[in-house]
Amino acid sequence: MSETATRSRTGIFRSLSPGQVVTAAAGILFWGWLAVRLLNDWGVVDAGAAPDEPFVDPAGLPEWIPEWVAFAVEFLPQMASGVYLTVVLTVAGITFGFVLAVPLSIARVYGTTSSYLSLAFTELIRGTPLLVQLFVLYYGIGLTSFLGGLPGVGQGWVPDEAVWVAIVGFTINSAAYQAEYIRSALISVEESQLTAARAIGLSKLDGIRYVVLPQGLRYAIPGWTNELVYLIKYSSLAAFITVPELFHQAQDISSNNFRYTAVFTLAGVLYLALVISAAKLMETVERRTSIPGVGRIKGRQ
């Protein structure tokens, strides 16, 4: 075990570099703000602002504060509701996509007929633009009216049908990409591991489940981080099927005040916060799940 790994476990404050402190502080600020903002807007807690109104009046800020800060303060509440949907789409897409990707990748690596089916699915999805997929799902095949007709959709906490269509789209799309990442991770697990599993009497499927997957998924974490980061940004395409996520909100705001640079810079900063948070989260997952000799953590052989 490397010295750094030992230190970060025992004395977390002593071992943080200035960069890590800044990142952590920014993270706490961002997620703290988002949580309070959303809970306030949903009426769960009263943080002293009307829904979608800034916590402080941007017009009443002291004069020495730059104008762009007041601008940000004014539009952040609306952006926050977009960030919320962006997070929902990303988390749902990566999670449901993962559930599909595992069997897809196993079929691809170990299957016969199913290998070709999995390959066909993956190529079809990876070979066509996500936007095309979303348009087919939203405008094309009647999924929208079907989902919209389900009881409860669009009422109270349940998002409306456009969001569900987007989740279906991102799930399918992400499944294909994740299947590729997991596939290459599975084939990097030595074949002798499955042989050993078979030799003690495990069926092929059990051998994959108990021996190959636990190792392969660890190898897949870096690729998985990539996919998560992409998905956060690709989720902006949901704006084109009317989902009021972050990009959509930015469009909405800028079409009223024409301050494109300011609005999209603000949106960009929020995306950046999400991406960095995701990368940090995955870093933690990788560290927590690391096993000596499995995966790629440095200093652990």
């Binding site: 591991q193 042989t195 050993a196 030799a199 003690i200 009497g201 495990l202």
Partner: peptide, 21 residues
């Protein structure tokens, strides 16, 4: 049933093939 057979026949490998995880 090969899985049943392999319960009765242990195997030790040249390269150990221990489950790495």
């Amino acid at each position: 049933d090969v899985n049943e057979l392999r319960r009765d026949v242990g195997m030790v490998f040249q390269d150990f093939n221990l489950f790495a995880h």
